[in-house]
């Protein structure tokens, strides 16, 4: 393959996206968090009797604007970024939105493979897969897969990781 422009090969993003439902999950979670804050602020506003109502009002407005913007923008942005891919030798994930984080771990160095499912995720039918290596820094987390994909991935990684002994500790 001839490369016209001088340059080294590039790291492409991982191949697979998450389950589309994860956008709804992120939206609900972010929206819920902001709503809680708004409720708390409103209560405070109603209880405040001194003359600082305008300051409260301004703060409430700022929270509302930031909250709505975050809840609208973050989930779809995240969905565009979050990706994963597993090969027999490596697991590759890409997460984040403002800060994009790519993590690559050799399958031979995998120590544990866990799945977790919060209550909201159960309702939406989503599963998280967490893969740790011998390093306490940087587990690979794939958020929001559908159950079948997740269990297939876990089975595959567990099988592959068992074949190796050395975890470089």
């Amino acid at each position: 393959m001839s490369v016209v422009q001088a340059g080294a090969p590039e790291l492409r993003p991982p191949a697979h996206r998450l389950d589309r439902r994860v956008v709804r999950y992120w939206t609900l979670r972010a929206g819920g968090g902001w709503l809680l804050l708004l409720v708390a602020q409103s209560v405070w506003l109603l209880l405040a009797h001194d003359g600082r109502r305008d300051a409260h009002l301004v703060a409430l407005l700022v929270t509302a604007v930031v909250g709505v913007a975050h809840t609208c923008v973050m989930p779809s942005w995240r969905y565009r970024v979050h990706r994963w891919e597993a090969t027999p030798d490596a697991l590759f994930t890409q997460t984040g939105w403002l800060v994009e984080d790519r993590r690559i771990a050799p399958v031979s160095r995998i120590q544990t493979v866990d799945t977790t499912r919060g209550p909201l995720e159960q309702v939406l039918g989503l599963t998280n897969v967490t893969v740790t290596t011998a390093s306490a820094a940087g587990p690979l987390i794939i958020q929001g897969l559908d159950h079948t994909t997740a269990s297939e991935l876990v089975a595959e990684l567990t099988r592959l990781a068992q074949d190796t002994e050395d975890d470089a500790t």
Partner: peptide, 8 residues
């Protein structure tokens, strides 16, 4: 045991 590439 792993690599990370972070970009803000």
């Amino acid at each position: 045991v792993g690599l990370r590439l972070r970009r803000s």
